[in-house]
């Protein structure tokens, strides 16, 4: 057990809110969303292996308004976690720790994830599709 009198590092409630904190929390939140959302991919593969009737049911779920909102959320979560994950990998090799650069790459991650999501859904709507 740690000594209770030991000084603790300041936590979220102590720090003034910063842009980069929002990004960090979003990285975790999208990570959890993706972990849960991967069940959708498992369902798709299982139904594809099971037969046309099961696959049609999954397709109908994906095409419903609720399914479309989930898919949109899943797409953005994947795009953001991917873009911001690359930012994290850059930090791991020691690049981009300066405050200005950290903020800038954060904006790039948000912008790139939104653009990527937009491009994907534009493809879905322009070229047509069940899901």
């Amino acid at each position: 057990m740690p000594q209770l009198a030991r000084p603790l590092s300041p936590h979220i409630g102590i720090y003034r809110w910063q842009w980069t904190m929002t990004l960090s929390i979003l990285h975790r939140a999208t990570g959890i969303a993706l972990a849960v959302g991967t069940i959708l991919l498992v369902a798709l593969l299982l139904s594809l292996a099971a037969g046309p009737a099961a696959y049609a049911r999954v397709q109908a779920c994906c095409a419903s308004p609720f399914g479309q909102v989930l898919l949109l959320g899943w797409t953005w979560s994947l795009c953001y976690h991917l873009c911001n994950g690359i930012r994290h990998l850059a930090w791991d090799v020691g690049w981009g720790f300066e405050i200005a650069r950290g903020r800038l790459t954060g904006w790039i991650a948000i912008g790139a994830s939104l653009l990527l999501t937009l491009a994907i859904w534009a493809c879905v709507f322009v070229r047509g599709g069940a899901a």
Partner: peptide
Amino acid sequence: RVTAVALVPLALWLLWIALRLARADYVQA
């Protein structure tokens, strides 16, 4: 980190294949 590096190209590929699946019927999928 190792799984993250592997997932960068794999996730991009998955997005592309998901787009193709979205337009496919059962036989094509």
